[in-house]
Design a protein around this nucleic acid. Structure first.
Lengths: 343, 343
DNA sequence: CTGAAAGCGCTTACAG
DNA sequence: CTGAAAGCGCTTACAG
């Protein structure tokens, strides 16, 4: 609580400390960085001066001069931190980064390629040691300059295009196939699909998985039962209302993203059909098990994905070298009730 | 996709660009920063060299030398990004920061004061232009050095102690009082309290609000109906089981935090009591309206809180000056069903 | 309109 | 064990 004698309006520098302790700047640097070969007396003098001035080393300046140029900061580009999937990814990365004494610059892109580039440009300009990206763009060739310059880049959730990098991905197609197969196994032949923007590759993969599962059982997909480009809860809700208004409505729904699933549930509830129309969602979400009926989902493991993505960055920073690889993370079907409703 | 002629293993510098364009570094600097007074010819030469080298300005170095020393980066210290409350706060701050061309360094403290200090130290060492903090510590006097040095600091969700800063807060006590008053108005006289760690000031405030509401109606609080220090879902779940096992169990519950509310719901479900025991939770959470019964809550507005907190930082950075103030954000009781169950 | 010199806060590479 | 000089990548403050 005692006010510290900091230079008014500015912060003390290493030179201020050196002057007060009556040593050279280099000696202060040695003390600050815990380098050996400084007498106890000088260490004490420097430490006292640091305390007195409230000196805080300028890490930014030191990394500018330091041999490896590392900033102990990585950049994380997410879809939307407010979405629990992104939030879980981020939290897992943060935990790994903390173990390495590394801070995180993060931002959300909301499916906007321009925002993705702006964030990466801002992070690269701040000399991040690595980048973890869940891309919204269709091609990330612009990252090649960074990669050539030696910055490790890892993609998460979405595959790279135009660039060779490690990627932590799930198999969206087979996950979706499993979901729809589950519905078929419970007797459904007319299954509606409601999915995210078709500009998103993972959304297209999930639709393909849906088609695969139908083809497996020689069920002809009905175009009117397939609704793409639903990115929000309310857009999905409307889509489900429309599906149920069809002359031949589906008896089951596969909803290919967490917000879409929630929108679908709202529509089913509004019609009192939640116990008569089966539902399997892609992506788990908090409280899915507490709804009535509990929601069957194909769960991803965002914590595992985030941990692995961050670990890959740090392995490369620690000198690890390997060809850029796809690192698959398995999905898991969790039957809870909504997916086991029979037609 | 075409590989750029970047110096192998390193990035091009402003000097590299200057050499290639055959101008002085200062001229490159002018072009990069869009300063006026450069001939079209030189601009073209510099731009071509930048493209050829894949040059990206080192923003870190420029802010070291730049007059105001700004890094266009702020630090955000949250409770836990994976909690939807923190995630919503963060997202709102991010949106404001983006409008100002500012990046965010963020981290979670998980109620650990040491982590709080470590994060702030890391962010300050990276020369952030401002700090937004949801503190876990009981005293933040250590921030005074930063504040004296001119870094704007804003607290959010939790009040400052030992330091004079702006704070964006809700009135936890009166919010809790309103919640419990609501239960009393619906006929309850024995109301259980389940709350977060008593080390958290807002948890203590909410308990006080609970006591206030009982006192208002001259209801004697029963110590055995008050359970503190429940920080996780499962801890809260256990607590509710224990409450309902009492000889005289409460007919209603006030759960003073979002995870605690969810844990309580799990316990009520497990016993099939969700329609017979009333429940009001503090903090809204996604899907609260889709549960059965829908959950009555006292809602905070984390988006409004985050936006305001970030705006305050930028107003100060833009030269605004005022005495550090508490900025109250109202809470709102949302009756949905669980809180209107009668004894 | 353009550039040479100095310096932001720190570390490197030496010398003693 | 200690420090003087130079330099990280850039901008400032001048001079022309």
């Amino acid at each position: 609580m005692e006010p510290r004698p900091v230079p008014p309006g500015g912060r003390a520098t290493l030179r201020d400390v050196a002057r007060l302790a009556d040593v050279s700047p280099k000696t202060v640097s040695r003390v600050v960085n815990g380098e050996p070969g400084v007498t106890e007396a000088k260490i004490a003098a420097v430490t006292a001066a640091i305390d007195k001035l409230g000196y805080r080393p300028n890490f930014t300046a030191s990394s500018l001069r330091r041999a490896n140029g590392r900033t102990a900061t990585i950049g994380v580009v997410l879809e939307d931190v407010a979405n629990p999937f992104s939030a879980a990814l981020y939290r897992a990365m943060e935990d790994v980064a903390r173990e390495h004494g590394v801070s995180i610059l993060a931002g959300s892109v909301d499916e906007d390629p321009a925002r993705e580039r702006a964030l990466i440009s801002a992070f690269a300009g701040r000399q991040v040691d690595g980048l973890i990206v869940a891309p919204a763009s269709t091609n990330q060739g612009y990252l090649n300059a960074e990669i050539l310059a030696g910055t490790p880049v890892v993609f998460v959730d979405r595959a790279p295009a135009g660039v060779q990098v490690d990627a932590v991905l799930i198999d969206n197609r087979s996950g979706a196939r499993e979901a729809v197969r589950h519905l078929i196994a419970h007797g459904h032949r007319t299954i509606g699909y409601v999915g995210d923007l078709r500009t998103i590759a993972t959304a297209r993969d999930r639709l393909q998985g849906y088609r695969d599962a139908l083809a497996d059982e020689a069920i002809r997909p009905r175009p009117e039962h397939i609704v793409e480009d639903r990115h929000t809860e309310s857009a999905a809700e409307q889509a489900v209302h429309a599906l149920l208004d069809l002359p031949e409505p589906p008896t089951a729904l596969f909803t290919a993203q967490n917000l879409v699933t929630i929108g679908a549930i709202r529509a089913l509830r509004a019609r009192g059909r939640q116990h008569s129309i089966a539902l399997v969602g892609f992506d788990d979400f908090p409280l899915a098990d507490l709804l009535d009926p509990p929601v069957t989902v194909v769960a991803q493991d965002p914590s595992a994905m985030g941990r692995l993505a961050a670990s890959l960055i740090f392995r490369r920073l620690d000198g690890g070298s390997w060809e850029p690889t796809i690192h698959p993370i398995p999905t898991r079907l969790i039957p809870r009730g909504s997916g086991e409703i029979r037609p």
